[in-house]
C-alpha cells in the first residue's frame, strides 16, 4: 500500500480524493451511457439529424396499449405487494427478537434460486394442465385459465418482487421505538388508533421505498411477460427489448426508453422526498 504512505488523511481534501476512481467510474459507466440513450433517442436512425420521431413512436396504438397495460399491471402488483407485505412485516416485527432474524432470512432465501427458473416453475403450476389445475380438478373445482393472460403476469410480478416490499417495510417497522407505541396505549389510544396515528406514519419511508422497488421493475419487465404471458401479452419492456434485440433499431428503442425514464424519474423524486437512504440499505 505504498500509495497511502505519503498522503496525510487528516486533511479533508486528501481523503476526498479516495472517491476519484469512483467519480471517474460513474462518469464513464452511468452518466455517459445515459447520455447516449438520450442522444440516440433524439436522433434519426438514417440521417442522424435531431428528431422527435423516436419519442413519438410511443403514440402508435400498439405501443400505447403496451404502455397502458404495463402501467395498470405494475400499479396493481405494487398495491398487492403492499397489501400482502405490510401485515407480514408487522407480524415479523412483533415476533420475539430471538427468532425473527431467522424468519427474515427465510423470506430472503427464495432469491437464491435463480429468478428465471422460479418464474418457469410458476408456468408449470399455472398451466392449463398444470399443477394447480390438477389439484383443483382433484377437489372437483373448476379449472383456472390464467396462463398467458395479464393475471398470470401480475401473479409473477407479485411473486418476484414481494421480498423487495417486505424488507424495507420490515426495516422501518423494526426501528419504531416500543416506548412510543406504549405511550400511545397509555394515553388511551386503542390498537387501531395507534396504528393510524403512530405506526403507519412512522413507516412511510419504508412504504415509499418498497413501492418504488416494486413499481419500477414491474413496469419495465420483459421477462415475466415473456414467460407467463406467452408471446400474447406485450408490455412496454417487451416492445423495447424487441427494438434492440430483434429489430436492431437503437434509435427507436432509445426513444421508447426515454418515455419509460419519465416514470422512473417520477419515482426517484418520490424517494428523494421521503427516503433518507435508510429503507434500502439492508437488502440482504
Amino acid at each position: 500500500m505504498a500509495l497511502f504512505v505519503p498522503v496525510n488523511f487528516m486533511k479533508r481534501k486528501n481523503t476526498v480524493l479516495l472517491a476519484t476512481p469512483y467519480g471517474l467510474w460513474i462518469t464513464g459507466f452511468t452518466i455517459i451511457p445515459l447520455l447516449m440513450v438520450v442522444y440516440y433517442g433524439f436522433t434519426s436512425r438514417s440521417t442522424g439529424v435531431l428528431t422527435l420521431d423516436n419519442i413519438k413512436l410511443i403514440s402508435t396504438p400498439e405501443n400505447l396499449k403496451a404502455l397502458w397495460l404495463s402501467v395498470q399491471l405494475s400499479l396493481l402488483s405494487t398495491f398487492l405487494c403492499l397489501l400482502i407485505a405490510y401485515p407480514l412485516a408487522m407480524i415479523l416485527r412483533n415476533m420475539k427478537a430471538k427468532s425473527n432474524s431467522f424468519m427474515v432470512m427465510l423470506f430472503i432465501m427464495p432469491m437464491w434460486m435463480n429468478s428465471l427458473l422460479r418464474i418457469v416453475a410458476w408456468q408449470n403450476i399455472l398451466e392449463k394442465r398444470g399443477i394447480l389445475n390438477t389439484f383443483l380438478s382433484f377437489l372437483h373445482l373448476p379449472a383456472l385459465e390464467i396462463i398467458n393472460t395479464p393475471a398470470a403476469i401480475v401473479f409473477g410480478m407479485v411473486y418476484d418482487f414481494l421480498p423487495f416490499m417486505i424488507l424495507p417495510l420490515y426495516n422501518t417497522l423494526v426501528k419504531i421505538d416500543e416506548n412510543v407505541i406504549n405511550a400511545a396505549h397509555d394515553l388511551g389510544a386503542g390498537n387501531f388508533y395507534t396504528f393510524i396515528k403512530i405506526i403507519f406514519p412512522l413507516s412511510i419511508p419504508g412504504v415509499v421505498s418498497g413501492i418504488t422497488m416494486v413499481f419500477v421493475p414491474s413496469l419495465t419487465t420483459f421477462v415475466i411477460s415473456d414467460i407467463l404471458g406467452g408471446s400474447k401479452v406485450l408490455l412496454i419492456g417487451n416492445v423495447i427489448e424487441q427494438q434492440f434485440q430483434k429489430l436492431n433499431n437503437w434509435n427507436s428503442g432509445s426513444g421508447l426508453s426515454l418515455v419509460l425514464m419519465v416514470f422512473v424519474l417520477l419515482s426517484m423524486t418520490l424517494v428523494a422526498k421521503y427516503d433518507k437512504g435508510e429503507g434500502r440499505t439492508n437488502v440482504l
Partner: peptide
C-alpha cells in the same frame, strides 16, 4: 443505477 429500470 439502483433506482433506474434495469432494462435502461
Amino acid at each position: 443505477p439502483m433506482l433506474n429500470a434495469e432494462i435502461v
